[in-house]
Design a binder for these strands. Structure first.
Lengths: 113, 113
DNA sequence: GTGACGTATTCCTATATCGGAATATGATTG
DNA sequence: CAATCATATTCCGATATAGGAATACGTCAC
């Protein structure tokens, strides 16, 4: 077996930096392919291919307007990521607290008497 | 070029379901490899390989105790994911609001006069 | 319709993955 | 030190990916 398909998951789709960058660009709103190409200076075919992947997992949708293809974000599809991550938030905060304690301790030791 | 290495990123590391499952198991706390193996019924070599990937990106750390290797979560390393995702939270909520409006409208139309 | 434009697709190659099976390593016990 | 337990590593195969280059497709303007 090989790695999971990039189109199998939002998780797999956003593993690629370029695709994350494309999504970032689309936060501003609907954009034609050309705008993404010039914003990111990635070759047009590459952008199209990445958009295809993002479409397949539903992270973007496409609307034709003349010869333009306007792509827009479908942020709800990021929800699984958000939910998965949420489980770690608590553990994460606990760690931060402990780190905080540790830092305070260091600070106390560093203080001149 | 091929896909980015799984060890290049937390994003790439967690693309694999098995690795997410392993992290999920470790939320409960430090565990030896064997416990993960029996919790998830993945072969021991596979678990070890996945743990290696997770180690390389710092998502887990390892501590030896006798012949056991105790792995534990390093949730802070998920922070980049969290931050990236946060940018979409607003867009996501806006969409939800619009969806909400839409649903309310549907409901209104459905109401008998 | 012909040309120009915006986008999508195809072909290619190098690379790396996951999983299984077998085996190596390392620590512990008697 | 031999046997055993816990884990790590290696070898193998099938798979598919990202990017470049070339090209196909679809729509618009003249």
């Amino acid at each position: 077996m090989a790695r999971s398909s990039t189109t199998s998951d939002a998780f797999n789709a956003i593993a690629e930096v370029r695709r994350r960058e494309i999504l970032d660009v689309l936060i501003a709103g609907e954009k034609p392919v050309g705008a993404i190409v010039s914003d990111l200076s990635i070759s047009q075919p590459q952008v199209s291919k990445h958009l295809r992947v993002l479409s397949k997992v539903g992270l973007v949708t496409c609307r034709a307007k003349g010869r333009l293809r306007l792509y827009s974000l479908e942020p709800a599809r990021l929800r699984p990521l958000h939910e998965w991550l949420a489980k770690y938030e608590q553990a994460w905060n606990e760690r931060l607290d402990r780190m905080d304690d540790y830092l305070k301790e260091l600070q106390k030791k560093g203080e001149p008497q």
